[in-house]
Design a protein around this nucleic acid. Structure first.
Lengths: 336, 336
DNA sequence: GTGAAAGCGCTAACAT
DNA sequence: ATGTTAGCGCTTTCAC
C-alpha cells in the first residue's frame, strides 16, 4: 500500500495553518508561534505520525545534525570503546552518529571519506591510527571538506592538521618498560604490529627506549598482524623457534597480548609463570584473562568524548590533546 | 575562509554543460551521455573536488542509501559482532550505516526510532533483545515507517511483525544442559538477567527444561544485570552466601559468565576445578579466558549479514530466520 | 544526447 | 504572530 510519509504540508493542512507556521512550531524557535496554533500543529503532527524529513531539512538549512565516524574494525574492543565515547558525546550534543568501517584498507578509507563528505556531516571523526605515511589523497579529501566548513577530529594519530586527541604511546611504553625492569625482568621480546602503523612503531620504540635507560635491549622483535590472531601466530612462532632466554613478551596492544597468552596455553605453558606478558590499551578483556594482563591503560572512552568536543569547538588552531596513560601491573608479570 | 562546497552547477558550468547532463554523467545511468561530455564532466568534478550532496539527492529522489542500526551498547562484544556483520552486508549493498545506541532504555529507543525515521533510511535494523513486552509505542513508530515504504529487520528478538533473524535460545540452552549432564554434572545454579529480557528468560527456561528431562532441577537461580559486572556481583553474592552443593553455574550470556569467573578468582577459587562455568554466545573472549569458556555458539556476525538481506528482500510476509547454534564444550566444564 | 523547467520537503527572509 | 515567496542542490519529466 505504501502511502507516502506525511510531509510538513500535510501537517499544516491538517492543522489549518501555513507550512511556515507548522515549520516554526515543529522545528523552529518555538517562541514565535501562538500557544493555540502550536497545539493545533503538534496534535496534527501526532495524529499523522509525522517525522520531519531530515534530508530536506539539511538541504534547506545547508547543514546536518550528524557526525560521521570512521573506524577500522568495529568488532575490535579498542575501537568499539572509542566509538562508545563518541556516541556519548554526540548524543549529548544532539547529533546522530553515522559510522563507516575501513577494514584497515587505505583505499577504502579514502573512498569512505569521499562518500561521507557527501553526507555533509557536521563533523568527521577518524578513529585509530592511519595506515602509512602516504596520506596525500586522504589529506586532500579532508581539506576539501574542511574548506567547505566541515569539522574534523582525529583520534589516536597525531600529524594531521586537525584537532587531535591522542596519548603518548612512546612514553606509555617507556614507563611500562621501567616498571617491568623494576620488577626484576631483564630479557624482553617485543611483539609488534606492521611497521606502517604509527601506534605500533611508537610503542615499540618507547619500550626499547625505556629498556635502554636501564642498559638493556630487546632480545628479539617479532612482527605480526595487529590482531589477536596475529599475536597468537607470532607467539606460536616464537615458541617453535625456541624462546631461548626471553622472560617477558611485550605486545604492542592487548588484543595481540591476549592472542599470545592463548598461544602460550595452547603450548602447555602458563602465562605469567613460564613466560610473562604485557600489553597496551587496557581493554575490558584485560582483567578477564587469567592471569590478568599487565598493560598501559588508555582512556579510550574519554578519548572518544574528547574528540567530539574538539570537533565541535570553534577554534582556528588545531588543538592537540594528549590524555595521560598509566601503567597497570597485574598477574601476567609477577615480580621476579 | 570557508568557501562553499562545489555544487553540481559549479561542475556543469566548469564543464560547459547543463546541470542535467552533469547529473546524468555523475550519478545517473551513464549510458545516456556522450563519451566526450562524460569526460568533460568527470574531469571538472575531479578538478573541483566535487562530492554530491547526498541530502539533496535524497530529497530529490525521495530515498536514501543508508541503513540505520539500533543497538543497546556498542562496546558490548555481542552487539559489536552483530554490528560488524551488518556493516559488511550494508557495504556489499552499497549502503552507509548510521548507528544509534539506546543504552537499554526503552524510552531512548523509542525516541531514536523517531529521529531515525526522519533520516528516511532505506532500512532500520534493530539489534538485541527488546526490553519488556510493552512495545506498543515502538510498534506504532515502526509501522508508520513501514507504511511509508521503509524496511525493517530485527535481530535477536522474535515477536515483531518484521523480518527477523534469531536463534533458538531455549533449544540452545536445552542442548547445553544435556551436554553438561552427560559430562556428569548434577547440581546447577543459573545466573540469569532481568526477567523482562526475552533472551534471558528463554535461555534460563531452556536450560531448566533440559535438566528436567534428566529428572533434575536447578539448585538455585540468581538474577543480575545482563553485564559483566552483573555476573561478577551475582557470583560474589552466591559465594558469600555459601555456594553449597552447586557444581556448575550457567550464566545466560558469556559476558556474565566471564564476570562470574573473575569473581571466582577474586575469591581465590579456580574456575573449572572448584566450580564449573558455562555461558552462552561464544563471544571472541570466550577462548581468551582461562580455562576457556564452555558456551553455546551463536553466529553473531552472520546474523547481522542475514538481517540486512532480510531487510532488503522484497517480501510481503515477514520472514523468520532461525540460525543454528552449537554447544561448545571447553575447559571451564571438565568431565566429572 | 542534451537542455529547460518543474518539483522533492523544508527553511528563511520578507511582508503584513 | 502568521502567510507568501524564494530558494537549498539535486533529479527527472518533457521537449527538441
Amino acid at each position: 500500500m505504501t502511502e507516502q510519509a506525511p510531509t510538513l504540508l500535510d501537517v499544516a493542512r491538517e492543522a489549518g495553518v501555513s507550512a511556515a507556521t507548522a515549520s516554526r512550531a515543529l522545528n523552529g524557535s518555538t517562541r514565535t508561534v501562538s500557544a493555540e496554533k502550536l497545539n493545533l500543529v503538534l496534535q496534527a503532527a501526532a495524529r499523522l505520525g509525522y517525522a520531519p524529513n531530515l534530508s530536506a531539512q539539511a538541504t534547506a538549512r545547508g547543514s546536518t545534525k550528524t557526525v560521521a565516524l570512521i573506524v577500522h574494525d568495529i568488532a575490535d574492543p579498542y575501537f568499539s570503546s572509542i566509538a562508545a565515547g563518541i556516541v556519548d558525546g554526540a548524543e549529548a550534543a544532539g547529533l546522530t552518529v553515522t559510522m563507516a568501517v575501513t577494514g584497515r584498507s587505505p583505499d577504502r578509507e579514502l573512498e569512505i571519506v569521499s562518500i561521507l563528505r557527501g553526507h555533509r556531516p557536521h563533523a568527521i571523526v577518524l578513529a585509530g591510527s592511519r595506515i602509512g605515511d602516504d596520506q596525500e589523497a586522504l589529506a586532500d579529501e579532508l581539506s576539501a571538506y574542511r574548506a567547505a566548513g566541515g569539522r574534523v577530529a582525529v583520534v589516536s594519530q597525531p600529524g594531521l592538521p586537525y584537532g587531535t586527541v591522542t596519548i603518548d604511546n612512546r612514553r606509555g611504553a617507556d614507563e611500562l618498560a621501567d616498571a617491568l625492569v623494576a620488577h626484576g625482568y631483564r630479557r624482553f621480546a617485543i611483539l609488534r604490529g606492521p611497521d606502517v602503523l604509527h601506534t605500533s612503531r611508537d610503542r615499540a620504540e618507547g619500550f626499547t627506549a625505556g629498556l635502554a635507560r636501564a642498559g638493556l635491549e630487546p632480545v628479539e622483535t617479532v612482527e605480526a598482524e595487529f590482531t589477536e590472531d596475529g599475536g597468537h601466530a607470532a607467539m606460536s612462532g616464537l615458541l617453535d623457534r625456541g624462546r631461548g632466554e626471553v622472560e617477558l613478551v611485550f605486545a604492542v596492544n592487548d588484543v595481540m597480548a591476549i592472542g599470545a597468552m592463548r598461544a602460550l596455553r595452547d603450548a602447555g605453558l602458563v602465562p605469567g609463570r613460564d613466560l610473562a606478558i604485557a600489553g597496551f590499551d587496557d581493554i575490558p578483556a584485560a582483567v578477564d584473562v587469567d592471569p590478568a594482563l599487565t598493560t598501559v591503560a588508555v582512556p579510550m572512552r574519554k578519548m572518544g568524548r574528547r574528540a567530539i568536543e574538539l570537533a565541535l569547538a570553534e577554534t582556528e588552531e588545531p588543538e592537540l590533546v594528549r590524555l595521560p596513560t598509566s601503567v597497570v601491573l597485574r598477574g601476567s608479570t609477577p615480580r621476579r
